[in-house]
Design a protein around this nucleic acid. Structure first.
Lengths: 259, 259
DNA sequence: ACAAAAGTGTTCCCCCTACACCCATGC
DNA sequence: GCATGGGTGTAGGGGGAACACTTTTGT
């Protein structure tokens, strides 16, 4: 740990209560899509055995959304991402015993008995859907690694982060039914079968190709471009891009009905 | 204001920070259904011009859900209600200037400059669907009235409570599409057309009687009883009750499809 | 008898489902 | 040619939308 990091750590521990709200944090479930796999961005906190969702504290004069955006920008380099709060987790014991003396002594900090970080924390869960290739994962001062993980290959995370992740996935599947948010996970140009793979991954089930294509095109917010790169050993599929104006129009009309 | 109330108020103002979490509250959108009208429970805070959603603070060792249940129990006398968090409102200025000296002087309290109630507050919105007739609206120490209002006849509420109410309605409409939560608003015995009126009110549009009946019955969680009271001057409609076991079964199977 | 609303039936049609069939491309 | 996946066609069925007809009750 270099001088700067030590200072940052000291600052958060000893002075954080001056500029952050107490008892409150945000955690972000950052999802990407790569090689037909759903990925989630995780941090490896120093001195902890398990990995963690990227998160942060809330400044005294910012909204939760701003705090989440800030966290996301710092971890991924991305602004303008699709970000959505989905639940607040408030189990009184969720952070009990998480901050312990050994952890801090090992990095040269004597944490006061009454430090703000030892208190109970509630956390607001956000999910972010980002374009995998644009992300440059960056660890923060409290962690030594920041990496994409296959969402199915994740072991035990710190605290209740497994629960937060699962809740996020449920919310996303629900949203997907009436709002095609999946586009945020794809590059600007994509094929229909890439889109289909994404939907299949998010929903956890196979879909019919023909029906899927027709349905997506019927929404009217996909723009067909020219042919795909010759790198595939079968018929070249069309590339599509996403027409955000038509998309917003379609959203207001409502994509699904039902009582 | 009697002695007890004065004490309670004093206690909240001067000692609240000892047993409540700072900066955080819950607000409940309590909905009922009566005379084919959707009703919402509102409080009239003393010394304020506008009405308010019932709300409360969060004890240092309870979950947000517990805090909301507690609020609900105190205001309505109901436990076992359908309660759902739907959003957390975090505008840094949402409570600015809400607590002012005049307010407190008028009830005989000199509020310290640095009192916890003057700080920024975030609030977690919950909605509750309750059986109108079972509710006994009860004001709290901070308010002099607690009443049902027609949801369409509400003027300006305090703070951002109009926004909270609107957000709640959107969430409920969305939920209703894939989860028939409306039953929580009806008495144990009800007719199909009462149910239909409720749906029409919640969704804000007319529905076809025949199609509605068939759809609801097709779910399989309605139990047909015997005839209705003779108090109607037309054919007596069947009464139905709600089979919670079949309901849970149906929910797991999924009521709606879509990609 | 009449009004009003409940219960039930019927038709049309859209859209989802499922397959099937041909097309383009790299090896 | 052949394997592979892309694009498109189509027959069938389920169910929603709209409407009609009959039934029951109180006045």
């Amino acid at each position: 740990m270099n001088m700067q990091e030590q200072e940052d750590w000291d600052s958060i521990v000893l002075k954080g209560h001056e500029y952050y709200l107490p008892h409150l944090s945000v955690d972000c479930v950052v999802l990407g899509f790569h090689h037909n796999q759903l990925k989630v961005l995780l941090l490896k906190p120093k001195q902890k055995k398990n990995w963690a969702l990227p998160g942060g504290f809330v400044k005294k004069d910012e909204t939760l959304e701003d705090a989440a955006y800030r966290t996301l920008l710092e971890r991924t380099g991305l602004s303008d991402t699709y970000l959505q709060q989905f639940h607040i987790f408030s189990n009184p014991n969720r952070t009990k015993h998480y901050r312990n003396d050994e952890e801090f002594e090992s990095i040269g900090i004597k944490m006061p008995e009454e430090n703000w970080l030892r208190k109970r924390f509630l956390t607001v869960g956000f999910y972010a859907l980002v374009e995998f290739s644009k992300v440059v994962p960056m660890p923060n001062v409290l962690s030594d690694q920041c990496e994409w993980w296959d969402i199915d290959g994740i072991g035990e995370l710190i605290l209740d982060h497994n629960e937060i992740l699962e809740t996020a996935q449920k919310s996303i599947r629900l949203q997907l039914k009436y709002k095609p948010i999946g586009f945020n996970l794809l590059p600007t140009k994509f094929t229909l079968s890439e889109l289909q793979k994404l939907y299949e991954t998010l929903l956890g089930k196979k879909l019919d190709r023909g029906n899927f294509n027709r349905k997506m095109l019927s929404y009217g917010f996909l723009i067909q471009l020219e042919e795909k790169k010759s790198g595939v050993r079968h018929r070249a599929p069309y590339l599509y891009s996403f027409d955000i104006e038509q998309y917003n129009l379609a959203l207001n009309e409502g994509l699904n009905g039902g009582i």
